[in-house]
Amino acid sequence: MTRLLIAIFAWAVLIFLVAPLVVIFPLSFSSGNILTLPVPGYSLQWYQDFFFDGRWLSAMKNSFVVGIATMIIATVLGTAAAYGINLSEFRGKKLVLAALSLPMVVPLIVTAASMFLAFSLVGLANSLTGLVIAHTIIAAPYVVITVLASLRTFDPNLMRGALSLGAPPLTAFREVVLPIIMPGVASGAIFAFATSFDELVIAIFITGPGEFTLPRQMFAGLREFLSPTITAAAVIMIVLSFILLFISETIRRRGERLTAARINR
């Protein structure tokens, strides 16, 4: 009886969380010009409007450019930071970790306002370059955390052995350390891309009027006129999120299998 109640409660919570996402799908295929349920009919007109409208295509392009650039920079910096922290023992190590995690806990509106003031002084405001730097700041902590989790299963003696055999530090890291912690690095990269691709508040502060990202274009559409094209954009973002989650879970399970295989050896 207890298990049945737990199962019912779990399904009820799941439906409560997923229902708003499910409603978007029929709305995105509506043949009407306003958002109403039930839909008057079904059509692909709003997806056609999304893929043939220059504003939406430009916004999607900017989101991918910024997301990929953020993912690369945040992954490199976050992996290096996690590896250095894991190997080092020093006073204030927990304080450093707390400082690196601040972008995850500080309200985005506070972060965005601070970045806008700082970037305005150095000419990075109203630019995609500034947005990439800003997104890297908030995305790097996710990489640090996932890579640190992977490094817990890494034996430092392997790195020392490679160095003792004459391998340069960078080569030893690339050939010995990186393959072992790759699941954590890949997961961190996915989280960094997702964080950048879905971010709105900082984009409003940092980007200029001609450099909209997809979330900012959706926000502008909500303010100017409630077009059903927004629902098509929302469905595309939801599907992309599910794909990223599937890739992340696949990488995690593969990493667990590889770790178990090494232990069994």
Rank of each mutant, 00 (worst) to 15 (best):
D155W: 05
M159N: 06
V110W: 06
A19E: 09
L214P: 00
G184N: 01
S187G: 14
S164W: 10
M1F: 11
P169W: 14
S241H: 05
V176Q: 02
F119G: 00
A220I: 05
T195I: 09
I145L: 11
I72E: 03
L240Q: 13
L4T: 08
F51W: 15
I251V: 15
V13E: 12
F9W: 12
I236T: 11
V144C: 04
S227E: 10
T111I: 14
T195L: 06
L226V: 13
R160F: 13
L97T: 04
I243R: 10
A118T: 12
F212R: 03
I236C: 12
A139S: 15
Q217G: 03
M1D: 05
G67Y: 03
V143W: 00
L21R: 06
I133Q: 08
F154I: 13
T171S: 09
F50M: 09
L44N: 05
T75F: 06
F173Y: 15
A19W: 12
P103R: 08
S127P: 01
I133F: 15
G67H: 02
F90G: 05
I8H: 06
S227H: 11
G32P: 07
V110A: 13
A80S: 07
A7N: 07
F173W: 10
Y42I: 04
L95D: 04
K94V: 05
S58K: 07
A139N: 00
L240T: 14
P209L: 07
F197P: 00
A194M: 14
F29I: 14
V110P: 01
A232C: 08
F29W: 05
S227N: 11
W11Q: 11
L131D: 00
L77N: 01
T259Y: 08
T136D: 03
I206Y: 00
A74L: 13
I251L: 15
A140H: 00
Y142A: 03
F116C: 02
A186V: 10
R152P: 02
I190N: 01
G78Q: 02
P156V: 12
V96N: 02
L97C: 01
T195P: 01
P40F: 08
L151M: 07
S88R: 10
W46L: 04
G161R: 03
T129R: 08
R257L: 15
